[in-house]
Design a protein around this nucleic acid. Sequence first.
DNA 1: CTGAAAGCGCTTACAG
DNA 2: CTGAAAGCGCTTACAG
Lengths: 344, 344
Amino acid sequence: VKATSRKPTVKDVAKAAGVSPMTVSNVINASGRVSSDTAIRVRQVIEELGYRQSTAARRFRLSKQWMIGLLVVDDNLSFLGDPFTTEVITGLTNYLTGIGYSLTLRGIRPSQFDTHDLFHGIETDAMVLLLSGSSEERLRQLKSLQSFKVPIVLIQEPVPPLVTSVACIRQDDFGGGSAIALHLCATGARDFWMLVPRAVWPAFEARRAGFENAMSAVPGARLRVLDCEDERYETIVAVVSEALGHSRPEAIVGLNDQMAIAAMHAAQRLGLSVPDELQVTGFNGLAFWQFSTPHLTTVLSQGHEIGYRAGAELIAALGSGRFKQKDVVLPVSLRLAESTRHMG
Amino acid sequence: VKATSRKPTVKDVAKAAGVSPMTVSNVINASGRVSSDTAIRVRQVIEELGYRQSTAARRFRLSKQWMIGLLVVDDNLSFLGDPFTTEVITGLTNYLTGIGYSLTLRGIRPSQFDTHDLFHGIETDAMVLLLSGSSEERLRQLKSLQSFKVPIVLIQEPVPPLVTSVACIRQDDFGGGSAIALHLCATGARDFWMLVPRAVWPAFEARRAGFENAMSAVPGARLRVLDCEDERYETIVAVVSEALGHSRPEAIVGLNDQMAIAAMHAAQRLGLSVPDELQVTGFNGLAFWQFSTPHLTTVLSQGHEIGYRAGAELIAALGSGRFKQKDVVLPVSLRLAESTRHMG
DNA sequence: CTGAAAGCGCTTACAG
DNA sequence: CTGAAAGCGCTTACAG
């Protein structure tokens, strides 16, 4: 028996093995309803012919894709730029690869959301969403994505009220913000600046809220917000340099490590010593914190774990028809380094 | 006409519009063979019924997936860790999203390559590969992946001889390595150390070869290779600190920015001033170079462009049946910063 | 310009 | 334990 030029199908295998196509199917899918003699023969023919199941046909027949879609909505063309996002994707991929699912990646700008034909050519069993923009925008994005009628996991933001078939995996950014505030206050600092970029990310809002909440319990603590056009290194350096020309805080709080390092550099260039004259804190602790001098006190994010859990919850929901938990919150931890002063 | 519970198909649309299914198909796919009256009516019904084409059925019928597979072979569980890889993926996604293709991501360890059932459930029109390991290993990986019989683009490594249907997109890492060597030699330095991690990446080999080649033309120039178990910050700091205990080079060359920054820190901790007593150079210039003090002289990589081109070449090859060019090499440029000494 | 027929490769009932 | 029939939703020839 010689293979023809076209790819062999179940039919070819069946004929060569002297059985029917559905017996071949049963062998492949290990339904257990086939005698071992037949199974062995069929497997041998499969080997000989180099038969490989058509995934496309299976997907079509069973209307199941074994595929999860990841949509990142971001104004930045370089949407994977943040190492946190990267970590999430890695965790998700690692989970999905392990159970034979694929991940499909798509990045889109918020402005393209309505016009662009997002819906063309995407067909996944479930979706993972990294949204951005104001909360109204994000709600609109979410509602529109729900028309796919697949389970959805939101990363790093709580599920809005009255929304079904959606769960959320996030970390305790509020708690992380609180931990930073408490640590800084414990060093005796009271005068804080916070770098807040214009682009709205839910996690940033939570970090800020956590910081303000913890700070509000400390008498005399004051927070000044430095608005930044974007998160770029040059932007942050410019904003901080300008502000330091007029007054001096005791600590600058970055909502992520990149911004914190830029602020640190701006201060150091003006001759300020970190942490003696100015303390600096970051957030995430993934790739950057070690690259500054001194190393950055930061909050350890669990991007990989968040991605991994997102995959696990989604697959579980696919099986049972519903999410076990609507809101999964992972803990974070403060990691002290030399950019802040330590007690005892 | 009220939509039933199940999703409407071409058949439903056809019936409601009083035409045949293939007319509906022609309208959707804009074949231009439909009278505008009919087309308008059909489009209206599509709207009313909320009909959406089944991608799975189309993929099956046309045996085309509109999907590109990206496979990263890396021993690191966190395979997206390197910002260069991240840039490549972003560029690829941006290109593919623009033309209605999806990207499917899979990460795998070299050790899993044979045993793990890589082939299950992947069905893509083409593949982009980021391989790792020795050149024999990579060749084996490539050959095994060729059994999919789809066009393949290799990132950052040349196509081995006698391999067909494979093209390569890379940057001029050899030239980048040369540029670093020439710049350092021009500052008067002759005594170099290079950090070389155990894991073999083709781009690293090219950078090293380029450096050695340019250096060999300069009388008195010497290179010492510091072997490192891996690329981690702590590992590099340990290796460099140890070596600096015995002797002092004039410059340390990192094969990427991460390693360069770690080396810089090790030197600074021993009281060496950069660049006066020791110069340091990196490679990539993507996210890290600004985060060190002083900023890092580095070679600018074009990860985004490489990913984008990879997508473009692949889609072109899908159309014409062959690659226009087997080996696309993008230029790199040296970016000077304060970690090296500059001439007037 | 429009339609009736056939089939892509697989699997789910349903019989034997 | 095994098989003949039917169909998932779409589109490509082929006729009218």
